[in-house]
């Protein structure tokens, strides 16, 4: 494991923990897109189908369990928690799941490395992760007013993607036969989706003003 991969995993971990702690502590999910969180829960569920079958390392198994546990906990909080669910901005969070799910499923059925159930599900999870942030970005764009924690959540997720690209570049030059076109192209698209958000995030940080996205 190289430093970029580890730093990427840590920012990914930090992003979900920031979100979970925010919801748990202030008992509010205002500004958080349930659609995006449900898509992430599905991403982890379909990607880690073989979690108890294929063993990579203790680190991998623990991280997978944390990602599964935290993503389903966040969804549970927003949908079921007596207090938290009242703060959910249902009328603003209108992005349709199917609009993202269907193209990803079709693409996974057509473009994959092996036509098996496990492999197609894994590929589907890669495609879906690339676009799962869209409902959250639309919600931020709509409400414009972004609290610090939601801003940090999206920033940390974007940082995780950027670090993973550095990790692939590093692995490409240090490992033999390390070519994963599907992961790379989906990963680059995913990182590009954050570019616009990053621009406004750094602007607000530079001018030390509250983060606000243009309408």
């Amino acid at each position: 494991m190289n430093i970029f991969r580890l730093a990427g995993d840590m920012t990914h971990l930090a992003s979900v923990l920031v979100l979970l702690l925010k919801i748990h502590t202030i008992k509010s999910c205002s500004g958080v897109s349930l659609k995006t969180q449900e898509l992430y829960a599905l991403v982890f569920a379909t990607r880690y189908l073989d979690i108890f079958v294929t063993y990579v390392s203790f680190y991998n198994t623990v991280m997978k369990l944390i990602f599964l546990g935290s993503s389903f906990s966040i969804v549970w909080y927003i949908r079921r928690h007596r207090v938290v669910r009242r703060s959910y901005d249902k009328d603003q969070d209108t992005f349709r799941h199917l609009f993202l799910l269907l193209p990803c499923l079709v693409l996974a059925l057509v473009i994959n490395e092996k036509f098996t159930f496990k492999e197609v599900m894994w590929t589907f999870s890669i495609y879906l992760e690339a676009v799962a942030i869209l409902p959250q970005l639309v919600l931020l764009q709509r409400t414009r007013n972004i609290d610090n924690l939601t801003g940090q959540y999206v920033f940390l997720l974007g940082a995780y993607r950027a670090l993973y690209i550095l990790n692939w570049i590093y692995r490409y030059f240090t490992e033999e036969h390390y070519v994963h076109w599907i992961t790379w192209i989906a990963g680059i698209i995913q990182t590009l989706l954050y570019a616009d958000f990053f621009y406004y995030y750094f602007q607000s940080w530079k001018n030390s003003v509250k983060l606000e996205l243009p309408a």
Partner: peptide, 10 residues
């Protein structure tokens, strides 16, 4: 490895 096979990333 190809695809999820031998894939060690999260």
């Amino acid at each position: 490895g190809s695809g999820s096979m031998g894939h060690d990333e999260l």
